[in-house]
Design a protein around this nucleic acid. Structure first.
Lengths: 108, 108
DNA sequence: CCAAACCATAACCATACGGTTATGCGTTGT
DNA sequence: ACAACGCATAACCGTATGGTTATGGTTTGG
């Protein structure tokens, strides 16, 4: 099922440091681990571990280039969580019917 | 900031048992702790603790009636998480700009 | 009135989690 | 060649988390 993916996404987003890393990748685009560590407020190994969790949720991708590892955000991976909100967020359904079509496009 | 609320919501949704409880409340409406325990797959105290977490995130409300405690879903509380997705889900913004205006109505 | 029902809290336990420092391995500049 | 860099992994640690059983306080049915 898709809810299995949603689990990884929700779990990944539950940590503020992880969200901050994801946010930086969304705003600034591709980033090396070194660059991310500078703003993360935690050690480099901690950043690496967070990136592993984000990658498991498919929220980030990486591109190895020599000794550098470039990570980028994959916001499409939010889709499972968004789909869950669609199904169980009555508020969402009421006011954002248009979203339905959007999410269907995402499924495939 | 609103992100503080988003933290509680994301944290609450990170656990599958908690999501299941929320789902049941959304689908079946108001429910007692006893009724929720029947389908939760965990003990009654566990359900009570999950409900406490959900309540902290304002995802549920409760109404004491004699010895029974009736809980109900408050899907509006998903809004902070939805807003976060709006801000950092570039995929959505790109292809579904219309969503932005709608979400702004949500903020207030 | 008294036993049973409903629920929350307490006390406890194993494990997961987020963080650290230490290390090691490939890569790169000089 | 080799020192320095970039990153991941290992080893470790304190605390949070999710679960359990035990308990106790109201409330209710008979």
């Amino acid at each position: 099922m898709k809810s299995a993916e949603a689990q990884h996404v929700f779990r990944a987003l539950a940590d503020p440091t992880r969200r901050a890393i994801f946010e930086e990748l969304v705003r600034k685009g591709e980033r090396t681990v070194h660059a991310l560590t500078a703003n993360a407020g935690v050690s480099q190994p901690a950043v690496s571990k967070h990136l592993t969790v984000l990658k498991r949720a498919k929220l980030v991708g990486n591109r190895r280039e020599g000794r550098e590892n470039h990570y980028c955000a994959r916001p499409e991976a939010l889709a499972p969580a968004a789909a869950w909100m669609k199904d169980f967020g009555a508020f969402w359904n009421e006011r954002f019917d248009r979203l339905e079509a959007v999410l269907e496009g995402m499924e495939k």
